[in-house]
Design a protein around this nucleic acid. Structure first.
Length: 565
RNA sequence: GGGCCGGUAGCUCAGUUUGGCAGAGCGUCUGGCUUUUAACCAGACGGUCGCGUGUUCAAAUCGCGCCCGGCCCGCCA
């Protein structure tokens, strides 16, 4: 915050601390190749008490897609850097599960991450719960304690799958367990101050605004009309009337009930709840998406300083990324979960993706996933000094690679991703290994664990090829011969090639014979290969044919070359 | 309309704080691997660094103006 010395703390003006932390490094700070080091410097500048607390959080409102993983991974790297520097760090993740359901999601997902249309669950039950906190709504899948618990659980699973230790904190529990008592009471005791501060950011804040929304004991909905506040009770209470609530383009009707709720039976509005979490949890750093940068953050840090009288955490805005060039949208089906991604690549590749500069907008593309994996492979090879790389690349790899993988091990083997995809056409693991060795992708003396690790990628790359249906998705057309139309010369050449294969030759001989046969019959070599790919894959291109024909059972190959079956 | 972030090769991205020859990988093309088809090797092609302008010996980098995309400026999170 030393870049802007002139911030005003007179209460009349919003403070001007920019959340674009990565753009505001001070001249006297060391220059870092890794953004998390710059953030860690800023955290240390606060002289934080241990453990240092790093937070992320989302509202468990529906399908937790890959974009939400920013909330976990960005904090994780800062946490790891601080741990490296000898600090005790706690990474918490709040499930903001006392938020009310404001509209019906069109798409949900089960615990395995399978997308499920709203129509396939009890949509009526969900509809009756509009306006109620996520933790009070029954799980539409019936497998968890509540709607909120269902989606929080998926977030926890995602973090586990990426090997990131988080303390998942339920915001509902912060209220019900009384951990929010002090901060809620403080805000209510300083209502006027609270109104004064927030009114600078929200026009709707007027004389009647009370920064607490009780849950109606009659209908269970979060409601907004508080008629009086009693701070003498313990816990404090509010009287309320259950009135209509605006929710986007529609209104959620209140039941009209008049009652009393304790401050454990409701919630603060987000603009206070967020800073309240900073205080109750002692947060030192929190990354957030760019949607918060010009709205919640300015008001949040103002509330922190001038209502709660605490220092807000070090902020960091991250850019959103897109999926195949389009925004994430579960209703449009443009969504992908961590569990989906981990069927396509290793966790460390995904961790690498989140180690890149958070201030850059990026696209995550399944179609071109091979580019990301290749980039990771190069990053890894750079760390081990196996490729020529620029100074910048080297410096980045040296600094970041150890944080991305569980343990740097030089003997690790990475099959090139597209090669692995092609190997996926063999179901037999031994065959995969044999071909990979033959093509020099596995060294003679490779340790067993490294070979196993390398072959795991075959399964993932095959999933990728199948999912995208791309040019690496070779499927041996075993059961039925593909449609074909060859001239007589080609047919004669195929006969001869069949005879050659029937005699029993090795992969290299078969490869050579393909050329020879084509030449003898005056068939264009490219066309002849094409005929082979047509017969076996119903494609125009394919894997190197000699070794392939050598691997598939001979009887079938001979018969197929003769077009017998 | 106002504020903020982003825009670098066909694609994915480094490089922008602290000005110093425009970079990498992939793709493409050419050649090689005593035979074009997952691989490998060598080379080539590929750029108005969104546009304009100012400062400077020197600008992708700094200033100003503009264009495009996104986010925020109601509510909610």
């Amino acid at each position: 915050m030393s870049a802007n010395e002139d911030e005003t703390i007179d209460g009349g003006e919003p403070d001007a601390e920019s959340p674009y932390t990565l753009q505001r490094e001070d001249g006297d700070d060391a220059r870092h190749v890794f953004w998390a080091d710059a953030v860690a410097d800023r955290v240390e500048d606060r002289d934080p008490t241990e453990p240092i607390v790093i937070k992320g959080g989302i509202s468990p409102s529906g399908v937790p897609h890959l974009g939400n993983v920013n909330e976990v991974m960005r904090g994780y790297y800062v946490a790891e850097v601080l741990r490296e520097r000898g600090h005790d760090v706690r990474q918490v993740f709040t499930a903001d599960d006392r938020d009310p359901l404001r509209k019906l999601p069109r798409t949900l997902c089960d615990l395995e991450g399978n997308l499920v249309d709203l129509g396939e669950v009890d949509a009526g039950a969900l509809g009756r719960n509009l306006g109620s906190p996520y933790t009070d709504i029954p799980d539409p899948f019936g497998c968890c304690d509540s709607y909120g618990a269902h989606f929080s659980g998926i977030i926890q699973d995602s973090a586990d799958a990426m090997d990131v230790p988080i303390d998942l904190v339920s915001t509902t529990e912060l209220y019900t367990d009384g951990e929010f008592d002090d901060v809620t009471r403080h805000v209510l005791a300083n209502q006027e101050r609270a109104r004064e501060v927030l009114s600078q950011y929200q026009d709707k804040v007027d004389e009647d605004y009370v920064p607490f929304n009780p849950i109606c004991e009659e209908c269970g909905k979060v409601t907004e009309t508080v008629t009086s506040v009693d701070l003498e009770s313990d816990p404090a209470t509010v009287d309320y009337r259950c009135t209509d609530m605006d929710a986007g383009d529609r209104t959620i009707e209140g039941c009209g009930h008049e009652g009393t709720a304790t401050i454990r039976e409701g919630k603060m509005p987000w603009r206070f709840e967020w800073p309240g979490q900073w205080q109750a949890l002692g947060v030192d750093f929190e990354p957030f998406g760019k949607d918060h940068a010009e709205g919640s953050w300015p008001s949040g840090q103002d509330v922190a300083r001038n209502v709660l009288e605490i220092d807000p955490p070090v902020p960091m805005v991250y850019e959103w990324f897109t999926l195949e060039g389009e925004p994430f949208s579960s209703s449009e089906g443009n969504v992908i979960l961590v569990s989906d991604v981990l069927e396509l690549l290793e966790p460390e590749v995904l961790r690498y993706f989140f180690a890149k500069d958070p201030s850059k907008a990026r696209d995550f593309s399944i179609e071109r996933l091979d580019q990301l994996v290749d980039e990771f492979d190069r990053f890894e090879a750079t760390y081990f000094g196996e490729v020529d790389a620029s100074e910048d690349e080297q410096a980045f790899a040296e600094r970041v690679y150890p944080l991305v993988v569980e343990e740097p091990r030089e003997e690790r083997i990475r099959l090139p991703y597209t090669f692995a995809a092609v190997l996926g056409m063999f179901d037999d693991p031994e065959l995969r290994e044999e071909v990979a060795r033959k093509e020099d992708h596995i060294p003679e003396d490779a340790p067993e664990w490294a070979v196993e690790g390398a072959l795991e990628r075959v399964e993932q790359a095959r999933n990728w090829a199948r999912r995208t249906g791309n040019e690496f998705d070779y499927e041996l057309k075993r059961s039925e011969i593909p449609e074909h139309d060859f001239d007589s010369a080609t047919e004669a050449a195929l006969e001869e090639l069949a005879d050659f294969v029937a005699e029993g030759h090795g992969p290299d001989e078969i490869q050579g014979e393909i050329y020879e046969t084509a030449k003898r019959h005056d068939v264009d070599i490219g066309d002849f290969f094409g005929a082979g790919y047509r017969l076996f894959f119903d494609e125009q291109q394919g894997p190197k044919l000699g070794p392939f024909l050598d691997k598939v059972d001979r009887e079938f190959v001979v018969a197929r070359l003769r077009r017998d079956r």
